[in-house]
Design a protein around this nucleic acid. Structure first.
Length: 217
DNA sequence: ATGGTAGGTGGCCTA
């Protein structure tokens, strides 16, 4: 934590399970934890929410990846992913977000231009129709706006490239799995979204690249 | 239809 403070982020809210999963929101300003839900009762640490002193709430989600086969009858993890999204939807229906930002690895690329090959990817977990339907239901339930696509509506845009490609940059078989959303009451304050694609080429990189957005609030 | 890479933890599982 000292390292984060030295880097200019003395405040945070976080949940984690060593060796498994975790979410964290670092802040330059005081932030108070306001929620940490265990959707689909997985016993995981995939959600944290904090509120800043200006009244803005920030959610960070790590939606389950969902395994390989997009069929809950043979792949329990896929069912858990859908259930996770269904419970997110119901929670946002019951707790209508206002002045809120949602970020995270949502493990779904919702739009045809969020993947390198829409037709091929329709059979691949992260871009199947049932996942996109669940994803859109969560957005509708919270009146969420996709800030990244508000700023960058056109063109292929990815935030993740598999480790398994021999040359991720040349093959460029990416997916936009990481998202920045805002409720419609503050979405007009968002601008300057971008993906730091260069980070995918750093030493010992994550397979995800950072997604940025700026809010004037 | 399959394998490909990376990581964390501990000898395999998940992403």
């Amino acid at each position: 934590m000292e390292g984060f403070a030295e880097a200019g982020y003395p405040y945070f809210v976080a949940r984690g399970q060593k060796g498994y999963n975790g979410v964290m929101i670092l802040s330059k300003m005081p932030i108070e934890e306001v929620a940490a839900e265990d959707f689909a009762s997985l016993g995981h640490a995939r959600h944290i929410a904090g509120r800043l002193e200006n009244g803005v709430t920030i959610h960070n989600f790590y939606v389950p990846a969902g395994g390989d086969k997009p069929d809950r009858a043979v792949n329990e993890k896929f069912g858990q992913k859908l259930d996770y999204l269904t419970e997110m939807r119901d929670w946002f229906k019951a707790n209508k977000p206002k002045k809120s930002i949602l970020v995270g690895d949502l493990n779904i690329a919702p739009l045809p231009h969020d993947v390198w090959d829409h037709k091929k990817m329709l059979k691949i977990v992260s871009h199947t129709q049932v996942e996109v339907d669940h994803f859109n239901d969560v957005m509708a339930a919270g009146d969420w706006i996709d800030v990244t696509r508000q700023d960058i509506p056109e063109g292929l845009l990815y935030s993740w490239w598999s480790y398994r490609a021999k040359d991720w940059d040349a093959a460029d078989k990416g997916r936009r799995l990481d998202h920045v959303w805002a409720t419609s009451d503050i979405s007009a304050a968002a601008h300057s979204s971008r993906v730091l694609r260069d980070a995918r080429g750093w030493e010992k990189p994550s397979d995800h690249a950072p997604v940025f957005a700026t809010f004037d609030l």
